[in-house]
């Protein structure tokens, strides 16, 4: 079986684990930021770069500006965590976290980093914990992107086979929502499949 060949069982497990991880994230945000969120059913697929591009084009409207935060994580399982929010959502977030009616660019950026921090830490940690492994997080970086062209040229050269884990998170009261993407590639896909295989063995034993 090749790295890209994930069975329905593999995808089912990943989706279920993602559900649990998202549950953890919403609970942590409720606790740390006093905001109650709802989560969407995660979308999981094994794709290539064109697949990722068209998925992003379908998911994220092109006619806006987005704060895009990318954070790498590594260990037995590694990849990139991407959190995307509209500038409107980001302003609302800056507003909410810093209690300023007109947050400055720096406030917004820091608020976006803070939320991403919590999201990635809870989602990815919980996901990997369920797979009996641990990961380390690297410094995130945020940029303001015009339209939905989130994947740069340099990255195009770098990603061949990709696992896309994507979902949306909505905080109704604060009018904040964002898209989450977890991308992983190459050898990491093989490792992920191996970790899921172990999980499957446990289940079918």
């Amino acid at each position: 079986m090749q790295a890209s060949e994930f069975s329905d069982d593999h995808l089912d497990i990943l989706k279920e684990l993602m559900n649990i991880a998202m549950g953890n994230a919403t609970a942590s945000i409720a606790d740390l930021l006093q905001a109650f969120g709802t989560m969407h059913i995660p979308y999981i697929s094994v794709s290539d770069l064109n697949g990722l591009k068209s998925f992003i084009e379908e998911t994220i409207p092109n006619d806006r500006q987005y704060y895009v935060t990318k954070q790498l994580f590594g260990g037995m399982f590694g990849g990139e965590f991407i959190f995307v929010m509209t500038d409107e959502s980001a302003v609302n977030l800056g507003n909410y976290l810093y209690d300023i009616s007109k947050p400055e660019r720096a406030d917004i950026l820091d608020a976006v980093v803070e939320l991403t921090n919590i999201l990635s830490a809870t989602i990815v940690s919980r996901l990997t914990e369920e797979l009996n492994t641990k990961v380390q997080f690297f410094v995130p970086s945020t940029e303001l992107v015009e339209g939905n062209n989130l994947i740069g040229l340099a990255e195009i050269l770098d990603y061949h086979k990709i696992i896309i884990v994507s979902t949306q998170m909505v905080f109704q009261t604060q009018n904040i929502s964002g898209y989450i993407f977890i991308l992983t590639k190459g050898e990491m896909i093989e490792r992920l499949r191996h970790l899921i295989d172990q999980k499957l063995e446990e289940l079918y034993a």
Partner: peptide, 20 residues
């Protein structure tokens, strides 16, 4: 809030370093 997040989630947190 960042300190609290770090302690509760036992994970590193960061400041945005891109602007000011």
């Amino acid at each position: 809030r960042k300190i609290r997040t770090t302690l509760r989630l036992s994970t590193p947190t960061f400041y945005d370093a891109s602007l000011s």
